[in-house]
Amino acid sequence: MKKFININGELLDLSTPLVMGILNVTPDSFYSGSRKQTETDIVNRCRQILDEGGRIIDIGGQSTTPTSTLLTAKEELERLEPALAIIRREFPDVILSVDTFYSEVAKVTVEKYGVNIINDISGGQIDENMFETVARLNVPYILMHMRGTPQTMQQFTHYDNFIQDILYYFSGKMAKLNLLGVNDIIIDPGFGFSKTTDQNYQLMAYLKYFNTFDVPILAGISRKSMIYKFLGGTAQESLNGTSVLNTVALLSGAHILRVHDVKEAMECVKIITKISNSVVIQ
């Protein structure tokens, strides 16, 4: 299993799972606690992520819920650029991931603000230039599984063979990326995207199968509807369910947890790592 990714020529060790903290510079992301738009809020959120043990900050400029409005690349950049300038001024060495499906946004944020990772929920489907752009930029790429767009994804939940279809999706996409010279790929099975509640739990049950690709796995479960639609309540009340699923993901081989609540995710990592390191080989 590949347990590192290349960040600006330095290897980021994933042998102990890392936590990626979410920062949304949006007015409409599904979890209100992640929305940060003022300079003070942005700085405080970044400091919180880092102080609580997060190694990567994932910044997003548009909501990806089914009820959200699709922004253009220009509109997304207008949200992202002021925040990125603030972050690079205050935290010049932090590892930054930008959550975007636009190749132009990827290009500008990497070249102008030194963004380290591109996190594309569409797997190159919304912008056909994304794969070639990431190859030219030579940064790690998070390849997520989704069908359609965030606005239409829940119309595409029928699969001939659910797990096999997703494995086939990753196999084909990774082959294309490898041919272009993209070697640092992280796969995200896409919990909550183009999947029913039952399918999300099936995906979690089979998450260990994705280790066959020999690349890092990212699990993004934090406060999603798969939790509160099953248990009841709201996103605000879904921290405990999130921690349970993060723990299951870690036991299934996840290398990165993308979360709103960094402290609690770090506790999951520390406990699972402690258990793993306590195994005595007879």
Score class of each variant (00 low, 15 high):
L77C: 12
M144T: 04
Y31H: 10
D93R: 06
V115M: 03
M130Q: 10
Y168W: 06
N116K: 03
L245G: 06
V280P: 03
D261R: 13
E75D: 15
K36W: 00
F210Q: 09
T212P: 05
T38W: 02
E78W: 12
H145I: 00
E128T: 09
L257P: 02
E132T: 12
V43K: 06
E10F: 03
P27N: 15
L71Y: 09
I22Q: 04
I42P: 05
M174R: 08
V182E: 05
G114C: 12
L23N: 11
V108R: 01
G33T: 11
P140H: 02
V105K: 00
N138C: 03
R55W: 04
L23K: 07
G61Q: 13
V105D: 00
P150L: 00
A135G: 11
V115A: 00
I121R: 14
D127C: 08
Q151Y: 06
K107F: 05
I118Y: 01
L179M: 15
I118C: 03
E111D: 11
S222W: 01
T38I: 07
Q155A: 12
L14Y: 15
M20Y: 02
N44K: 15
R79P: 13
S252N: 15
I42F: 06
L18P: 11
V25W: 01
R45G: 01
N200F: 00
R45M: 03
K224D: 02
Q282G: 14
S29T: 07
I5Y: 03
L71V: 11
C46R: 02
S194K: 01
Q37D: 09
F230L: 08
D58G: 09
G123W: 00
G21Y: 08
F30G: 00
I22M: 08
A106F: 03
S238I: 01
T242E: 00
A135I: 12
S278L: 01
K224V: 01
I163T: 06
R88P: 13
A106Y: 04
Q62E: 15
N178Y: 13
T26F: 00
G21C: 14
I22V: 14
L137G: 07
M174T: 15
I163Y: 07
S97K: 05
I126S: 00
T100A: 12
